[in-house]
Design a protein around this nucleic acid. Sequence first.
DNA 1: AAAAACATGTGAAAAAAATCACAATTAATG
DNA 2: CATTAATTGTGATTTTTTTCACATGTTTTT
Lengths: 209, 209
Amino acid sequence: MSETKLPRATAKRIPQYYRQFQKLQAEGVTNIMSKDLALIMKIESTTIRRDFSYIGELGKQRVGYDVNYVVAKLQTFLGFDEPKAVILIGAGHLATALINYNYIKGNNILISAAFDNSTEKVGSEIRDIPVYHMSELATYLTANPQITVAILSAPSEVAQEITNQLIAQGINGILNFSSKRLDVPKHVVVENVDLASKLQTLVYLTDQT
Amino acid sequence: MSETKLPRATAKRIPQYYRQFQKLQAEGVTNIMSKDLALIMKIESTTIRRDFSYIGELGKQRVGYDVNYVVAKLQTFLGFDEPKAVILIGAGHLATALINYNYIKGNNILISAAFDNSTEKVGSEIRDIPVYHMSELATYLTANPQITVAILSAPSEVAQEITNQLIAQGINGILNFSSKRLDVPKHVVVENVDLASKLQTLVYLTDQT
DNA sequence: AAAAACATGTGAAAAAAATCACAATTAATG
DNA sequence: CATTAATTGTGATTTTTTTCACATGTTTTT
């Protein structure tokens, strides 16, 4: 869409804006100005306006941003016009937490299935999301080729092995919760969430101040 | 030893280095060079060397970095010489996942207790970590004034209210898993982990490529 | 023991991101 | 209907972060 290349820092913030505007919408807010948004999101108003300028002229001078309009624009920009299905590898506590997290009204990212090796979990459901055995992964992805993103919440020891499987089956986006950095070909996007590191960072930063 | 102020980008990477070196240590690796570390961590070797230079001269030319030495140095630098205790607000699936995550051998961040309102959880233990009722929070923190960091895994609706309580009780670092940005005084450090946004970012970036 | 090979640490340059400053515009006010 | 007040979007600037390039020092080889 954008002719000028979107800065990476901006790209990472767009989904945050989208989510914030969804919330404003849910709260019945119809209009917001960059200064107020800055207070809520703890992002400088100038940064917000600059970011938005990459998407197009979203606001009106002296008025601010129409919430419905921005939600619609961001949705299109993000390619979320129609719901995107993703799968979950692992059906433990983290997986369950993620499924609960993902239950937002009007959400357009849909967790369609979870995969696990534990025989007691296989066959069950987590909030109406079915849990299949890992051995069914290939069949499932072949039957659902539109699924290209996976959330990896499996133990670190098997993370790389599962990653290889996923990629072989056509996955090209992975949200990695294992503490291992994954080796992937260039066309695959990995977002890492290392919870242990995050905690260490916080403890460190806290003691600094 | 550098007196020059640590760049924020570097500060956020130091705990990652620490964790990686802990792992190398566990694997029995005694020495590593910035180029190999770069491959593992997906961080440019120059960036690594520059980051390390803020901590001091950690490496040896032509040889690389002694794993034990770097772990010790980073540990001191991060102030992790003695274990730090933190508390967990919420005892649901995410909390359980975090507790499991935090069980790393030789870890020096210790989750000492969890707090929840659910009567069935209160009194139980998650991996030997006791779950107390939220009403006991004030007493607990008064009895344990060395605890200054909390992990907030409570529902978004009550996140701000609990935050206020925490700060009133002397907490000044919060790892926030709720999707709400918290309003806190300047001396309080907040690290946000918005899992829903992370997923949206990934889906967006995946479709870009 | 000299030469070659090579990794660290860092000054300098480049790139990326954030912020300033303000023109353009629009709502509210008198 | 002119004036005032206020907010967006953006050129220009500043700050931050990354990367380049190489001097320095250490190991290995000949």
